[in-house]
Computed example of a mutant assay.
Amino acid sequence: MNDDTSLSVEGRPAYIGPECYLHPDKMIIGDKFDIYSLGMVLWALTSGTSPFQGLSEDDIISNHLRRQSEKVKGGTPVDYIKIYQSCWQSEPEKRPSLNEILIELKKLRSTLI
């Protein structure tokens, strides 16, 4: 964990948690920070596209500030949607842990086999 208040985050805005834009003064890099990105990767696996495809970086940041996320793609299992949407919580402490996500993915897998 970094206590440097001048910390900045670089990368693709679609994969950066909204807390970076909503509360930059309270931002803490840690496990919950990465969970948002994982949720976007999980969404991309079922959508077949990159998150916020076609939007400029400024538009993606605006979506984060308005707490708008990607739309669910038809045919996606409801339990899978719940997993990746839980990763998108605006407040990092409300996001699941990696272990919780793995447990839910294993449960989902067992229902699909």
Rank of each mutant, 00 (worst) to 15 (best):
D4S: 13
L7E: 11
S8Y: 04
S8P: 00
R12Q: 13
R12T: 10
P13E: 09
A14D: 07
A14Q: 10
Y15M: 10
Y15N: 04
I16D: 06
I16R: 03
I16P: 01
I16H: 04
G17W: 03
P18Q: 15
P18H: 14
E19W: 01
E19P: 00
L22S: 02
L22K: 03
H23K: 11
P24L: 09
D25Y: 00
D25W: 00
M27S: 08
I28P: 00
I29L: 12
G30R: 04
G30A: 09
G30T: 08
D31R: 06
D31N: 06
F33L: 14
S37A: 15
L38W: 03
L38H: 02
G39I: 05
G39Y: 00
V41H: 09
V41I: 15
L42T: 01
T46M: 09
S47A: 14
S50D: 10
S50N: 14
S50A: 08
F52M: 04
F52G: 01
F52S: 00
Q53V: 14
G54C: 08
G54P: 10
G54H: 08
G54E: 06
L55A: 06
L55C: 10
S56M: 06
E57M: 04
E57A: 14
D58W: 08
I60W: 15
I61P: 03
I61S: 10
I61K: 08
S62L: 08
N63Q: 13
L65A: 05
R66A: 09
R67F: 14
R67C: 05
R67P: 00
Q68W: 10
K71A: 15
V72E: 08
V72Y: 01
V72C: 01
G74F: 05
G75S: 10
G75D: 05
G75I: 03
P77N: 03
P77F: 11
D79R: 06
D79W: 03
Y80D: 11
I83R: 02
I83G: 01
I83C: 07
Y84W: 10
Y84C: 04
C87N: 03
C87L: 08
W88Y: 00
W88S: 01
Q89F: 08
Q89N: 13
Q89L: 09
E91G: 02
E91I: 02
E91K: 09
E91D: 12
P92D: 11
E93M: 13
E93I: 00
E93F: 04
K94T: 00
R95W: 03
S97F: 06
L98C: 07
N99M: 04
E100A: 09
E100Y: 00
L102W: 00
L102R: 02
I103E: 05
E104L: 06
L105D: 02
L105C: 08
K106M: 04
R109E: 13
R109K: 14
S110E: 11
S110D: 13
L112C: 14
L112A: 14
